[in-house]
Design a protein around this nucleic acid. Structure first.
Length: 208
DNA sequence: CGAGTTTGACCCGCGC
DNA sequence: GCGCGGGTCAAACTCG
């Protein structure tokens, strides 16, 4: 387990307005492939903003967020998979003469064993999709064993290859497991939209 | 009409 | 080597 360290990810928000990130630690617990024992759900009004960690929002907004957030809180989100993944875009020809529907060869993303950061966290929510400020395009959904119908999303930003997987536990369908893979290489559009006027105003006021 | 979703087929890694 | 399961592709479809 080399470098198994907790890492946080750009802030999703639970509503379409201002971000509430990270979620209260009680909502989050490490996601491992073996057992998942959700903690008791705290009362909604116990979302303790006072305990939010000290976040460098400017760095986050500018896309430079591959650092850890200072916090004394317990693990809120963990790196889930330390054996994968490095995507190598390899233009591969179709094997043999049998063609896929669509007829042409295609680019295949080869998952190589290396370190591409993955983070999972679990929330108890009626909504599958956390509004994290980024725009996502769904590219697949299928039934798998331990989860009903996980959905696969890709960041719609043309230079960004971040993916996320959203699934509900079959044991407890009120629990949503969101797994992020990769790090955004661009600012969070929605947060920028929301906070840019505020930041400008702060800069203006700080001159006096 | 473009962007996003659905869905069946395909690909590939892994365990046996 | 084979089969299974998870992940991805891409055509068709939907929606604004």
């Amino acid at each position: 387990m080399e470098g198994h360290q907790e890492q946080y990810y750009p802030p999703p928000s639970t509503s379409s307005s201002l971000p509430l990130w990270p979620p209260h630690p009680s909502y989050l617990f490490p996601s491992s492939s073996t057992s998942m024992n959700p903690p008791p759900l705290p009362e909604p009004h116990h979302q303790q903003q006072a305990q939010l960690p000290d976040i460098d929002w400017i760095s986050l907004l500018s896309g430079h967020h591959d650092h850890q957030i200072n916090t004394n809180e317990p693990a809120a989100m963990v790196e889930v998979n330390n054996k994968e993944n490095n995507v190598i875009e390899a233009a591969q020809e179709e094997k043999g003469s049998n063609k896929r529907k669509g007829g042409e060869g295609r680019k295949i993303s080869v998952m190589k064993k290396a370190s591409r950061p993955r983070f999972a966290f679990q929330t108890r929510s009626a909504d599958d999709i956390l509004d994290d400020g980024y725009r996502w395009r769904k590219y697949g959904q299928k039934a798998v064993k331990n989860s009903l119908y996980p959905s696969y999303y890709r960041c719609t930003h043309h230079t960004c290859s971040v993916k996320k997987q959203v699934q509900r536990l079959s044991k407890d369908t009120s629990i949503v497991v969101t797994t992020y893979e990769g790090v955004h290489n661009h600012p969070c559009e929605k947060l920028m939209e929301t906070l840019t006027p505020l930041l400008k105003q702060m800069q203006f006021l700080s001159r006096f």
